[in-house]
Design a protein around this nucleic acid. Sequence first.
DNA 1: CTGATGACTATAG
DNA 2: CCTATAGCCATCA
Length: 119
Amino acid sequence: MDRSARMHRIWETIRDIPEGTVASYGQVAEIAGIPRGARQVGYALRNLPAGHDVPWHRVLQASGRIAFPKGSRGYREQRKRLLEENVAVLSGRVDMQKYRWQPDLDELLWKPALAWDEE
DNA sequence: CTGATGACTATAG
DNA sequence: CCTATAGCCATCA
């Protein structure tokens, strides 16, 4: 699997995160079929093409914190987008227990199945 | 090839 | 809560 395919797979996975829910970088990586690939998820997001429709703001650190430095432009933008879809952000943090995305069994099985074909 | 980097994570103090 | 540390791993210079 090359760099481009991996990034596309990550972006696709993030597109599946429903409005009003969130996921951690590590969770996105696992679902995308890239174990221990949290940093690669960060890399893929950093390289989003212009005009994308990827809901990047629904991806947070495992602790529920926004990855951008507090007060930075990205931080403010992400916080704003989360609040817009009713996800509470208190002190730069989201309650993961409450908002964590829980994929259907369908997605958990179907997605990895696609990954196997491309090895 | 080698070392530095980072939208990460878990653990310890 | 915060800093430090150690793993992690694809990219990049």
